[in-house]
Design a protein around this nucleic acid. Sequence first.
DNA 1: TCTTTATTGCAATCTGTTTGCATTTACCTT
DNA 2: AAGGTAAATGCAAACAGATTGCAATAAAGA
Lengths: 145, 145
Amino acid sequence: MDEQWIIDKIKAAGLKLTRPRMLVIEVLRQNKNGFISADEIFNLINHKEKVCDLTSIYRTLTSLEEIQLVEKSDFFGEASQYRLLSHQDHYHHHHHYFKCNECGKIEVLCGDCNVVQYENDLKKRGFSNLSHRLELSGLCPSCNK
Amino acid sequence: MDEQWIIDKIKAAGLKLTRPRMLVIEVLRQNKNGFISADEIFNLINHKEKVCDLTSIYRTLTSLEEIQLVEKSDFFGEASQYRLLSHQDHYHHHHHYFKCNECGKIEVLCGDCNVVQYENDLKKRGFSNLSHRLELSGLCPSCNK
DNA sequence: TCTTTATTGCAATCTGTTTGCATTTACCTT
DNA sequence: AAGGTAAATGCAAACAGATTGCAATAAAGA
């Protein structure tokens, strides 16, 4: 594992650099930009021999989410999916999601967010502290043939 | 129960007018425009004596969702919530949702949908069959004081 | 190396939901 | 109004995803 900033961030948060954590991070890194479930992480880590418990994976993911290294997505009531936030994500934090109905893959869409207009209208109606989540689905370019 | 169109719709779908179904619909009707979980429905129905099983409530909700009398919402990984679709909803079917972080209530927001622009951009990039779901959260007008 | 405290593995538990199956009920036919 | 049939029910068991308690272990500062 190279990415020093990840290690720095973990240490800065007062968390220990343990084996399960390193394994989880390594899997997340290899899954760059994609989402993956706790169970899938578990299977990838343990496919040769059992080296890490599922419980520890959940706990690791929760910790890493707390220090903003990981983002959790609950997409349409299915098992939660996780992804490693990139260095940039920390500063530019808002995303939209696309899930393909064919291959099931979840993509992060980086683009303009015109929902902000909508939020402004709501503020005028008395709402506050607004945040939102936009989830799209359909067919992704590769399944759309 | 008055609303004849509900009964008509159930019969038209070839479903029987059973007691559990009537009870569930009655609860949903009294909860007009709001979302409610299977468990809450169960408790409302059975608060005096047990007259209907939770299993039947789930099955009823599934059936009613299939014939588009009920809408299901999986909000941020919590228990699924359901609401009765109004007569109009059948014809004008797209909504956005707002969940208050304080009181937990989910509201249906009827308003313009400027996400359509965004979908058009995606179509140009090869995506198709797009649909979306917009979930907002924050403080609702009554909790925002 | 020693000590402390966080973290782990395991088993048990939980919540929300679904399934199998024998019994019951709505409702169509007569 | 009674009877037959397929659909719907209740109950118990199973399920999936996730969390918790606790004793054993391991990371990292002294």
